[in-house]
Simulated assay, not measured.
Amino acid sequence: MQELRKSIVFFENVELRYDNLPVLKDISLKIEQGEHCVILGANGSGKSTLIKLINCELYPSYKDELFKREILGNERWVVTELRKHLGVVTNDLHTRFSLDGSYLSGFETVLSGFNGTIGLFDHLENTTDQMNAAEGAMERLGIHHLHDKRVDQMSTGELRKCIVARALVHPVKAILLDEPTVGLDIKAQLDFIEMMRSLAKSGTTVILVTHHIEEVFEEIQKAVLIKDGIIYASGNKDEVLNSINLSEIFNTSLEIQKQRGRYSIRPK
């Protein structure tokens, strides 16, 4: 019998409060397997909190009305088990490797994804299959030349790709990328966007969280706009990503242009 495909993300009427103050309100969101999606919003709009709800760092606040939050069909996950199905790449993780994992090689950085650690430890032995999978993840991203290069000798873009490969050591169904091109120069940004496109084409669902519309690549089908803790608009990217909507969520008059499948933005 063929396995039923579960939604990557299914939120219905979800709310999250800090000290009884709502941060996310009435969030309803569905991202299907294979439906590449961008979540776009200004700084402070609630993107980071939404990411934490998706990757199970946070759980919804209780409310009297019915609500539901499922990731890959489950309401609750052990985070280490979820990482086998949902890869997560954040700037916080990048910073931790820069500061605490500077002595690691590219291969050791990728291999550490199996145990969710910054570095390798004697009591956490890696199997031959795991080492082969780490090699395969590096090959998949075309970064095998970073195998023996130390983190403290890498460019920002090189380390970012190693961290993506780290998230791909498991056969994940989706990868969540939080502001992935921050700190990258123009060439590294373009290279990284091409890498995201390659992941999307290979069957890994890409969820891109950003405030840069220029990062929205051709394979993305769905756009979700977030403002002041609510989902302002959600749907097909060509319908959602327009000048009126973008001007509203960024609180300034903007004009959106699209050329050869890619978006750009300028003041109106």
Rank of each mutant, 00 (worst) to 15 (best):
N74P: 00
V88S: 00
S112H: 06
F114M: 00
G73S: 12
G87Y: 05
G87M: 08
E57M: 07
R166S: 02
G142P: 04
I71P: 04
A133F: 04
D148Q: 11
A165D: 08
G73T: 07
H85W: 02
H144D: 14
Y59R: 12
V172K: 02
R150Y: 07
V79W: 01
P60I: 06
V89G: 02
R83S: 15
L159R: 02
F114W: 12
S61D: 12
G87V: 05
G157P: 07
T80F: 14
E57C: 02
F67Y: 15
L146E: 13
A174R: 00
I143H: 04
E158T: 12
F121N: 10
K149Y: 03
I143Y: 01
G116L: 12
W77G: 04
E70I: 01
G136N: 15
M131F: 08
I143A: 04
S102H: 04
L58F: 15
L146P: 00
G101H: 08
S105E: 13
S98P: 00
V172T: 06
R140I: 09
S105A: 08
L58S: 11
L93Q: 04
S105T: 15
L146R: 05
I118T: 10
H94N: 09
E75F: 06
Q153I: 13
C162N: 10
V89I: 09
G116V: 05
V78P: 02
S61F: 13
P171I: 01
P60S: 10
G87I: 03
V164P: 03
R150H: 11
P171E: 15
V151N: 00
I71C: 09
D100A: 09
F67P: 06
E57D: 15
V79G: 02
N126R: 00
Q153V: 09
A134I: 01
V89H: 09
N74D: 10
T95C: 03
P171G: 10
S155V: 02
E125M: 08
T90P: 03
H147Q: 14
V164F: 10
V79H: 00
H123S: 04
D152M: 13
Y59I: 06
K63C: 15
A133G: 09
G136H: 13
L168G: 08
H145P: 01
L146Y: 11
F121Y: 15
I143R: 01
A134V: 09
G119T: 03
H94R: 13
K68V: 08
A137I: 05
L168T: 06
R140C: 11
N132S: 13
Y103G: 00
M154D: 08
I71G: 06
G106C: 03
S105Q: 06
L86Q: 06
S61I: 05
D92P: 07
F97N: 01
N126W: 03
L72Q: 13
L58V: 05
E57Y: 03
Y103E: 14
L146K: 07
E65W: 00
A137D: 11
